[in-house]
Structures are given as C-alpha cells and as structure tokens.
Design a protein around this nucleic acid. Sequence first.
DNA 1: AACCCAGGTTGACATGCATCAAGGGTAAAT
DNA 2: ATTTACCCTTGATGCATGTCAACCTGGGTT
Lengths: 252, 252
Amino acid sequence: MTQRKVISFETIRVACKNCTLSQLCLPMGMSPEDVDRLDSIVKRSRPLHRGDHLFRSGERFRSLYVVKTGSVKTYTPSEEGGEQVLGFHLPGEIIGLDAIDQDCHACSAKVLETSAICEVPFQRFEELAASIPSLQHSMFRLLSKEIGHDAEMLLLLGKKNAEERLAAFLVSMSQRLSKRGLSPTDFYLSMSRHEIGNYLGLAVETVSRLFTRFQDEGLVKVDRKHVEILDLGTIESLAGTAQAAGSRKHSN
Amino acid sequence: MTQRKVISFETIRVACKNCTLSQLCLPMGMSPEDVDRLDSIVKRSRPLHRGDHLFRSGERFRSLYVVKTGSVKTYTPSEEGGEQVLGFHLPGEIIGLDAIDQDCHACSAKVLETSAICEVPFQRFEELAASIPSLQHSMFRLLSKEIGHDAEMLLLLGKKNAEERLAAFLVSMSQRLSKRGLSPTDFYLSMSRHEIGNYLGLAVETVSRLFTRFQDEGLVKVDRKHVEILDLGTIESLAGTAQAAGSRKHSN
DNA sequence: AACCCAGGTTGACATGCATCAAGGGTAAAT
DNA sequence: ATTTACCCTTGATGCATGTCAACCTGGGTT
C-alpha cells in the first residue's frame, strides 16, 4: 500500500476554510462556524493515481467528490468496451451529482493523473444543508449550474461542427484553468486525444487533424499534451456560433 | 382577456394533494400538512395557449414551472433565429431548473399546445425546503434526475446515428406518457418535425424519411402528429446501442 | 542499446446525413 | 369557396467526418 511515493500529508489535510477553492466549491457565503461544520464531515484520503476509480457505474451512491488537485473523467461504460465520456473535472469541480436521484451511480469516475479528492458523504451533507440555508442554496445552484453546462454541451453536440467543438473545448479548458489562477494560454492536457474525441463526439483522427490545422493557422502550438494558445480571440470566435468560412450552419 | 374559450376553473384549481401528478412532481413522501404548505405557495394561472411563453432567455429567474396538462418546449434562441431545442416537457415535469444558478433564464420556454402550468416561486420554495427535509431531498433528486437525463442526451447526440436517435425519442415519449396512465403506443405529438429534428440534432428531412421508413418496416403507423407504435420491442432495441445493420459504430 | 507498444499523426477512401430543390397536403385566414 | 402559408414528404447531390490502414514517435522495459 505504500509502494508509491507518499505525498506530504500536509497537502491533503487542508481544511475547507483554508482551501483556495472554497469560492468555487460549496462554502459560498457561509459563516466560519458553518464552514467548520461542513469541514467536519468531509473526508480527505491519500492521493489517487492515474487509472484509479472514485466510483464505478452501478455502485451504491454514498458520497459526492470534489477535485482538489489533478483531474478526473466521468464516463458511461457501455457494453463491449465502448464508452461515452461525460466530462473532465478540474479542481473545484464536483462529481457524482447525477447519482443522487437513483441512489446509484450511472457513470464511472476515473482519475486521469495523480489527484487529491475530497469526499463528502451525502447523507450527512443533506442534514447539514437542511440546517444551513446558504449551504442548501449553494447546492441548488451547483446542481443548476451542472444542468446549464449540460445544455451547452447539448448545443455543442447538436449544432456545432468539428472545428467549433474543438475550439469550444480549448476555450473551456482555458477559462476553467484561469479561474483558479493558472495560465489561460499555456497548459497540459491530462486526457488523451481519444478521450477528447469521445467527449466531443468526434473520431480521434479528426481531433488530431484539427490540432494540426489550428497549429498551421498559428492559433495554437501543440506538443503532445502541452498546449499553448497563441490566438485566444480567434479560437473564442470559432467556438461561438462563428460562421465557419463557407459553411452556413443549418438552422433546424 | 376573455376572448378565448375559458376552460373550467375547476380543472385548474386542483390542489397539490389531489393532483394525480404528485408522485411525479415534488411532494414525494411529504406529510399531508407539508403538502398543504407547499400548496399554499403554488400559483395556478389560467391555461396558456400554443405559442405563449413561460419565460424568455435573459429574464430574471423567479419561479419554477410544473406542467400539469399539455406540453412545453425549452430552447436556447441563438442569434439570427437559429435555436437549439433543449427538451419537450410533459405533465409532471419541471421547467426552469437551469436558471437557479445564474438567477436568470438562459433558455426560453414556449407552450406547444393549450396547457395548464403550476408556478412555484423559488424563493418561497427554498424557505420551505429548508424546513421540510423530504422536500429538500425531493428537490435534490429532481435536479439530479435532470442531470442524469442530460447525460443520456449527450450519449444520444455524441454516439447514436439518426435511426437510433428517432427510436430513442419515440421510446422516451412512450415511457413518459405511459407513466401518467396514457397509452404507450398511441399518442399525438405536439411538436413539429422541425422541432423534433432540432432536438435530435437532425435535419427535418432526415426525421421525415425515418418516420416513413419505420412505417414501411411496420414498426409504426404515422399520420401527421398521430403516432401508433406497432412494434415497441424492435424500436426499443433500435434505441439502445443496437447494432444498426451494417453500421458498426465507432468505439471512440 | 534494442525493443516494445500505446498514443498520435497522416493519407486515401467511404458514407450518412445535410443541403438544395420541388411538389403536395392541410389548416387557418380572407 | 378560395387563398395563403406552413408543414411535411420525396428525390438528387455534395460534403464533413468516420473508417481503414500505414507509419511515426517517445517513454518505459528488459
């Protein structure tokens, strides 16, 4: 159990109140005492490693998970190894929300790189939420935000072409990383081309070709997982309902 | 204000406790007294008619809406009249959940046929939820369910072909209608082919051709908006990750 | 150092569905 | 009853992107 380099426990035992993610995470607008109460139910485990699962499809739902460092992908495994990637989750983002309804996980969550994850036992959380109105409100907002995000993805998959999809993906990564103080134009992708393609509803080859094309056009510089965005403005305009040259999108 | 035929007010003034939808809607597992409290904040307006809006994108968020009879579509209007249909909402289903986060509606909701709608002022609802644990739980589940449903749509749009999409649409309609006691195999669609196509990420023509093909294959009988499902089993198998003849789906 | 192998790239080709175009049926408006 | 307008259907064509195949590349292993 200890064969891997153990990362200093200090980096794990940071409480909610000191957490730099607290504004992204749940404790928005809570009193210090209430943050302590929330803190007391949150479990912090040792770091997880690439390939580890937070949970698997079909398992009983017990906890929500918050990414503290690293990244996680969620996906629905279908028969015969096929899968649909539902999302990539960066620090401050919450995983497992879709399982509350059925009390059972419909998707699996796999760690993409060494990551620290907070676990929030849901039953205790619900009790807490009932007694802390601002926590209940945060949770409603969080769930709602997820629904809004899904709606954006529906639009992406339903109406956008390959170019727009990849541009939107890059913009999303850029925005989410910069929100936590990292460079919006220089970052490493923790997921493979395969996973990106799956997520965006594209073949791996299409993703690869688009990266190459964006690079040829001077929009990005790509070296394996390392992405430098050279012209964020143009990529943003591609990601919107930008009229891709010569391709009026259907208005169905 | 009274130029249209007024539908008997009795049909509108039904309280939550008598509502046949109460098991689909919010008051799952609430005590009679608590249902009364919920009932007291719910507003029931006169019936709305085809084309009326519950709310429009950009408007301040104030209330959730529950379809009591009829049907509603939600969609994100984009520049130049293009739009993405996000969903069709049948009796018992709740609309506006995505607006909680931003406190502002990101999509519009338009009534597809004469419909009765319950309005639930959200602020008062939240106060109530904080004092009724089972109501808070119902709400968490409801939001979660919506997220789970969106994930299914992501899979549909990301991985399924046209045939599978339309089959899935028919199965979904069938299941939702039968859940409220209507025929699972004989119903009227309240939305146009255009709207179905938009929702499924397909061109109108494709939807039309598929209806024709399903009919030729003896799976359904279609006459304009009237659909009779003749072979639900086969349609269900098409809707799943059925291997459409001669088209191994990519496993990206 | 040589090997291995998963992940990535690139090219050639195939195809599902969008697009374009035209015509017919149905329901509301005059 | 006639007109109008929309919705739906059907056929012909083109294109974006999936599929197949080959090769490259870098990181890890023996």
